[in-house]
Design a protein around this nucleic acid. Structure first.
Lengths: 193, 193
DNA sequence: ATCACCATGTAAGCTGTTACATGATTAA
DNA sequence: TTAATCATGTAACAGCTTACATGGTGAT
């Protein structure tokens, strides 16, 4: 019954115990490259995980107006995380807002289409640079990257996937720009409103 | 105020007028490769679009127990679709269940990890074949593919993106499998529960 | 003095999924 | 006669986003 968000939190807690606040921060990067959550989602989910016996908290001294809780994985939680990680992942229903726009791109004149694709390309290229920095940081300690049983290896694998994705998007943008620019004949859109 | 789903429907109606039922079917393929919706979402959305003056319906003869409605784009709807298509697309918060599993893959023994990645690779390779078939179908009429002002060109561009994406995923799986298999020393997972 | 950071929660609203509901026509 | 297809809707629920709410400590 545990949700994807729940497993994201378990995955963070398997690395180290944290407060809800800290988990929210750790969700931003690098986990946030492929799964995000706001704190308003994190706190109720932690309560659910605790009700299911997958995590436990102890109250520690902290700065907030309410008691500060440090959560850690239980043995049950760790076992369930392992079981879930081994099951094949369900393909998510892809929802790509850019492709939705491209789907209706035939209504645009060439300049508008080119501008859209160029803006997209720039965003993906920028993300690639962020990943390159992250990559350098990981390569500072290359030993664990060779061992699939380390969390560093897992982070490395997801980063590689992110880089591959961005490279594919940049290449696609370049292809599309070439196609759009090759077309010199029909600069007019099909209908003007 | 129109949602992505609304623009998906407008994008379909810009190609041809349809009933809600037919729009639901047309959402499956090829639009469904990057945006899906169930009929329970389509009907209320069509009502909203009509309230906003972006689509209009006429009642036609049909098979259902209720009046059958054929929807078409209004001039306002077409103009709004064009405006929206030209604006840069917001990057969606990426949510990739596979990467979530990979993030916790360091808890698995090598065989389980390999099995997971192999299953993933097979799925992406299968999708590539589907796209290849779609590609052949589009290439039966190659003329409009050279003209960015045709809906065929737009469909072609999204298909190209889909192919690039699947290729990148397959390549990433192959890289990861190699990494996992190269590691012969630490076949044991870090903790057994 | 004001802002950022630590820290935890609730509430309202939107999007999307699954299930419920109806009923005619056509093909196996 | 049984199932698939055409055809349209509602309801319940899950997940996520945005906003509301509180209050202490340390830096500028």
């Amino acid at each position: 019954m545990t949700s994807n968000l729940g497993y994201a939190l378990l995955g963070l807690l398997a690395r180290s115990a944290s407060t809800g606040y800290d988990l929210t921060r750790r969700m931003q990067r690098p986990l946030g490259w492929f799964w995000t959550a706001a704190h308003s989602q994190v706190y109720p989910e932690l309560a659910r995980l605790e009700a299911d016996g997958l995590v436990q908290h102890e109250v520690i001294e902290g700065a907030g107006p309410r008691p500060t809780k440090r959560f850690r994985l239980t043995r049950t939680g760790r076992a369930q995380l392992r079981r879930w990680a081994a099951e094949p992942a369900a393909r998510p229903p892809e929802r790509d807002p850019l492709m939705l726009k491209v789907w209706s791109m035939w209504l645009l004149d060439r300049d508008a289409a080119v501008a859209l694709v160029e803006a997209t390309r720039a965003e993906h290229a920028a993300r690639l640079e962020v990943y390159a920095g992250q990559s350098l940081a990981l390569l500072q300690h290359p030993e664990p990257l060779a061992d699939p049983a380390t969390p560093q290896f897992a982070a490395w694998a997801t980063l590689r996937a992110g880089q591959g994705y961005e490279q594919h998007r940049v290449a696609w943008c370049d292809w599309l720009l070439e196609e759009l620019r090759r077309d010199r004949g029909s600069a007019d859109p099909p209908h003007h409103d």
